[in-house]
Nucleic acid binder design. Sequence first.
RNA 1: GGUCUGUUGGUGAAGCGGUUAACACAUUGCCCUCUCAAGGCAACAUUCACGGGUUCAAAUCCCGUACAGAUCACCA
Length: 552
Amino acid sequence: MTNKELADLIFPNITKTPEDYEAMYPKRDLMEGAKVVRFAPSPTGFMHIGNMMSATINYVLAKSSGGVFFLRNEDTDQARSVEGAVEFIHHVLNYYGIYPDEYEYNGKTVGNYGPYIQSERIEIYHAFIKYLISIGRAYPCFLTSDELNEIREYQAKSKKRIGIYGRYAKFRDISNDEAARRIKNGEKYVIRFRSKGDFNRKFIFEDLTKGKIEMPENDIDVPIMKSENLLPTYHFAHVVDDHLMRTTHVVRGEEWMSSVPLHYELFNAFGYKMPKYIHTSLILKKDGDTIRKISKRKDPEALMFYYEEKGYPTLAVIDAVLTIANSNFEEWRTNNPDKPFYEFPFSPKKMSSSGALFDLDKLDNISKNYISKMSASKLYEEYLTWAKKYDEHVYELISKYKEDTINFLNIERETKKPRKDYENYSSIFPKTWYMYDEEWNKTISYEFTKIINKDEIKSIMQACLDQYDSNDVEEVWFSKIKELCDQMGYQSNMKVYKENPDQYKGSIADFTTVIRVVLTTSNMTPNLYDIMKILGRKRMIERLNIFIEKYN
RNA sequence: GGUCUGUUGGUGAAGCGGUUAACACAUUGCCCUCUCAAGGCAACAUUCACGGGUUCAAAUCCCGUACAGAUCACCA
């Protein structure tokens, strides 16, 4: 029996050849230097920060070169597929504005190089496998999992290289007739690639971030098609898909480095040119004293749910990711504060070659800067959108008090050096809750610093309210406060006070703290003048009364 | 065990044979100041994992060692 006959026996219904597909998916007509890249997650888990980094880099690479960014769903491992994972991928990409040019979702396909879901490409893979069998570069292997385990154990024990190669490839050289007999017999089998490599020979391949790397040739007969669902393995799908989809640059995790020799041989077997590779380093996490790969199970910040729930601005997250990915992004960002991130000239060479710790402090800092530069109304919109999804109570309050909320968020905002006190939307309410009357029914503790005499506080408040005129500009208001301060035995000049603190009941700081705390319960708030203006006389009196009632 | 990669401060890092070893985050201190936030200023690696070599000169080049990570599935 010839190879061709064996191939026909295994794939009787496959009539197309690699050449047919070659014609169906011609080279893309793009400008010189345009990069074709892909984000190809497998829905075996929810999208995590590493995926995010990969997606972002791909997007930037495509956008900045006038190329194409497509999304491919790598769902060949159906046993491990997680419900909702695909939906979440689309959600995240959409949420962060990383829109693929080509994709397939909910029955809709965009792009001419599909299908973009691997399980729908099974016929294509079969045509390529059939071809390989017919030229003698692939064969059915009937090794059972018990046999496989035995081989592995033996190899481990005798310190040999692990894998199916050389004499361990038991079915590599059986006759086609025997293979056919076993298949007709109903025996389970996988299709393995027939490697021609020599482990003692080296080849050099160039990774765009790590540089030239010398590696031994592959000599392992890896499975390219699984026995159960007849789907290809990752390695084979990668070669077929990225060739037919005309990918120019493959961005993938460092863990794939060691399969480069295999991919190299696979591409060569078809006579195809390898794409360029950008192997990105892992994102690590410091756990006590040890540094390890970030874990979806242990580290909440590993999964993309985290950032959305906390309410980080999307662009802040992207900047944080790019800061880790490319060492000169930060510099570019300070020089180009308003440019969209995808205009960043990403350089694979500038990627760190060692793993980086994902630094949440850094994210907070980037995020604070972003939020401080938003207009109050824009911030309000974002805050509202976030609250609607993640905090109903806050949503109701800020909807009801829209004007107050915007005015409050605007305090010390539209200035050259705006306040930077919110790193995400979920951190706003804990710092602003006192603006909402409804919240005052809950337990209140007043955080006074120095003056704690109830009657004294009452008279200070009374005096300040008597003098309060909402038409006063800040300077006028404050000079009135100072005047009262001095009249009541406090010192309005901090310098003078510090020289002889014993001569006064307290300083202007102690004096204003009284007003601040009675009105907000907190001794740490933004500008008092603005807060009083937003509250208005009526509410200030109410709050004084609440104080008198509750404070002992 | 084989194969590959890496190792500059608490973190991300710049550096590519001669620099006071950038910058950013964090931390600490001071200043400013009605609190807070912000801002300003300053401190924080006598040294680039270790050992050897090349050189007038090494974080930078070479060799070795140690340590760390990745990978060696019909998972991606």
